[in-house]
Amino acid sequence: MQFPVTMTTQVPDGVTEAEVDEVRGREGAHSRELAAAGQLLRLWRPPLEPGEWRTFGLFEANDADQLEEVLSSMPLRIWRHDDVMPLEPHPNDPATATPLDAGATEYFTIFKLTIPEGTPAELVDEKVAGEATATRRLAGEGKLIRLWRRADGDALGLWQADSLDELTTILKSLPLTDWLDTDTIPLTAHPSDPAHAAR
């Protein structure tokens, strides 16, 4: 199973900068070990307020208990709170991995689908089929990287685009766009991201 984890770190008062640097150094080394073991898949930085320290991670584990063992093994966990959202496969997830474009920005999208009451079943089926075709095309064009279904029923997408304007145009082209409430989160590279290191 794959799990996205929001990791929020708050360093207690009185901890020296040297102590923080030492723990961060161990965190980076351990992240490389977890990546080599196939347990840490990706790391990103979301938009942050001044003084905020937060990271998005994508982990692989057999279940929630194994994931907790992995998260507990990370040195920064002594100052960190982790929020976990289990993922399930999405039928429109790209069948093959989409290569990352070093010049593009990655984005998370959270899609909440609301079908208007009274919509004919034939129209729903038509739009759902069109959505599947569109996502396959966008994956082939290198724009859609991954698509999952979250435990709360919403869909989580990972995209790459040259700009937010380009991504907005892409999302508006989706057949289901009129029924989607979409939250878009721009991501920046994390120094310990396994994919970033591979580049």
Rank of each mutant, 00 (worst) to 15 (best):
R54E: 10
E131M: 13
V128P: 02
L138K: 00
D101V: 11
R32T: 12
G28I: 08
T55D: 05
P86W: 07
A151V: 11
T114M: 04
P94G: 01
R26M: 11
K112R: 11
L100E: 07
A18P: 07
L167I: 00
L164Q: 02
P91G: 02
V15S: 06
V23R: 15
G153P: 09
E68Q: 13
V5R: 06
A104M: 07
A37W: 08
E141H: 13
L187V: 08
G28M: 10
P191M: 09
V15M: 10
P194N: 09
P46Q: 01
W44A: 12
D83Y: 08
W159Y: 03
Y107D: 00
P186K: 09
L176C: 12
H81K: 13
D178L: 14
R24A: 01
S192N: 14
E52M: 05
T184R: 12
V15K: 00
A198C: 14
L187M: 09
K143I: 09
R150N: 05
P191K: 12
L158S: 00
Q66K: 08
P116K: 10
H190M: 01
P120I: 05
G25Q: 03
M85K: 07
G103T: 13
T55I: 13
D63T: 01
A121C: 02
L176H: 14
A151L: 10
L164R: 08
P75N: 06
E33P: 05
A29F: 13
D154W: 03
A132E: 12
L58I: 08
L76K: 11
G157A: 05
E33A: 10
G157D: 07
D13G: 14
S163Q: 05
D21C: 01
G57V: 04
K112D: 11
R45W: 04
H90C: 12
S72Y: 11
K143N: 03
E131Q: 15
L67I: 11
S73V: 09
M1E: 03
L180D: 05
P120R: 06
V11P: 04
L100D: 03
L167F: 01
R137L: 12
W53Y: 08
L171S: 09
L123Q: 15
R77S: 14
L100M: 06
S163N: 04
R146H: 10
H190P: 04
P175E: 14
P46M: 01
I145E: 02
P99G: 09
V11L: 04
V15H: 03
P120T: 07
V15Y: 01
